[in-house]
Nucleic acid binder design. Sequence first.
DNA 1: TATGGTTACTAGCGCGCGCAAGTGCGAAGG
DNA 2: CCTTCGCACTTGCGCGCGCTAGTAACCATA
Lengths: 330, 330
Amino acid sequence: MAGTTVKRVTAADVARSLGLSRATVGFVLNDTPGQTIPEATRERVLAEAKRLGYRANSAAQALASGRSRIILLVLPDWPLEYSMRSHLDELSLALDEAGYSLVTMTPHPGGQARPLWETLRPDVVLGMTPFDARRLEEIRASGVQHVIPPTPAGAASSADELGFTEGPRLQVEHLLERGRARLAFASSPDPRIADLVAQRRRLTVETLRNRPHAALRAEDAVSVSNATAKVSEWLAAGVDGVVAYNDDIAALVLGAALRAGVRVPEDLAIVGHDDTPLAQLLVPSLSSVRIDSAGLGRYLADLALSAARASAPPTIGPETDAHLVVRETS
Amino acid sequence: MAGTTVKRVTAADVARSLGLSRATVGFVLNDTPGQTIPEATRERVLAEAKRLGYRANSAAQALASGRSRIILLVLPDWPLEYSMRSHLDELSLALDEAGYSLVTMTPHPGGQARPLWETLRPDVVLGMTPFDARRLEEIRASGVQHVIPPTPAGAASSADELGFTEGPRLQVEHLLERGRARLAFASSPDPRIADLVAQRRRLTVETLRNRPHAALRAEDAVSVSNATAKVSEWLAAGVDGVVAYNDDIAALVLGAALRAGVRVPEDLAIVGHDDTPLAQLLVPSLSSVRIDSAGLGRYLADLALSAARASAPPTIGPETDAHLVVRETS
DNA sequence: TATGGTTACTAGCGCGCGCAAGTGCGAAGG
DNA sequence: CCTTCGCACTTGCGCGCGCTAGTAACCATA
């Protein structure tokens, strides 16, 4: 077609056009330490590179330097919390400023004959949750030097580390304040998020431990097919408040309650978690826990960059602010 | 095995360990055409490669061959239709089987100093919607040979090409069947999806063109802040059926209607689009258009691969099956 | 026996770049 | 005056791989 720039401009082209050696050009372009380049030359090189439209060939850079400047973020295969998207933007931007590219991937149980950590040879592989031992081994075996989190699932959960532990406490305390005493924890049957569900359930149980007047049913997983049954079970057992694992589960409970003619929140109060857009779309609108993580993305970027550069990791985590958005279901 | 394998195994290692030359090893590993390799040698090489845990260095491959075997999918910066996720899986898998890796990115208006198409040098850049002229130029300028779709936004839309044009017709016809005659098209004010909104609006208008007994209001954008006002406007104008741009907009309309004491569907019927999980969570549950695209991912993969290999593009598009899921709002 | 063709390889270049190890030169120091 | 040093560069190797251009050995003919 028109305007075919088939041949890319290389550093050698820049050097030749300037009557300099390739090395000098390289030194300027990389700010190589230990080299003294007069300002005049430096500027000539930069100007010529720009004029010719020079772009470094990253494959060659990766081959020569051994570092790809790629950071691979492995996303969980369950739907992300709504707010995660903005954190990803923040992360991507912060890495970009440092000259690193963020690539995200979602592993699928069946597939991916050749996972991206082999293809891309990222400097760092970053997971939102700890990797299981087998996958950790797999990633390490493919030559990736830095994996975050570095320990397999089991030990401390990364959700703990990121301080996302306030939600269930807020949900419970709010319901207690509203005068509810017999609560149910509505969990998700999705096996992929079993860890997170278990964590929130545990936190719910712990929060209620010191409240002798309150009771909790904590073993119910709610799905489309059993929501109606669960709601009537609960009502029969005197449950008057539901702590939902997340907003989706809360919506399921709410829907079943409304269809059964149960008044919400009078007969049954419901509190969700994550404050997805869904929460304010429902009628009645859903009370939910919103977690704002100022600088979460930037924090993850610092974590990854410190690993990539073998420098000290950030000392403090991101600021997290969890609060309950009270709406009509409670 | 359980040690720090700092140094990766190269093809030269395999060759040395076998007493062969690097070239022979290369020929076997690449199935290089025009080379005669006895089966015995071929097997020795493959076995030794496996034994040593050889993995090709993709940076070196990219440098030497000039092809990165990476396909970059540029996602829109507005939320994806729910079903897109499974198509992505399908796409990724199909590409993987062909030895290509799929990398996805979402460009952000402000950011990304160095976009991924420069860093990764993908063989193909794939967009879900046409690129605007400026971005198309930008991608081409960075040396990417194949961009899909190859034409800038404006001409034929990719949604057209993919045959996703049935939805609005189904919405309208369903409402007419239900005896509704005065319809409103509820659009989204989000400027990022203006093209898609305009397309669905246009299809709605066209479908109603031949129905002299039906009327349409097509100029209303619904947001959280004006949903209530819009609903009363419509009712005052005698509107009895709403064609929503998507399920989110439909939910907004539904919520406003319920709060205003409007009976749905008796006073106002509502039909959404995309059949997101939201649709069946609402009370009353939302009628919506579901679009199943058998093999959409595989089709996109074929499209990308044919470009990468400079072979003929697939002749027929994916099978798309749009149908209306009738629920309680209509 | 010379000729041609096939088989089973190997030698080695080049992809574009980072960077270590020079090299020539003018100026400062003795 | 000679030596040393810092400056402003250049030469050139190596990263791992794809692939062209051989080459030596072994047939199969004429």
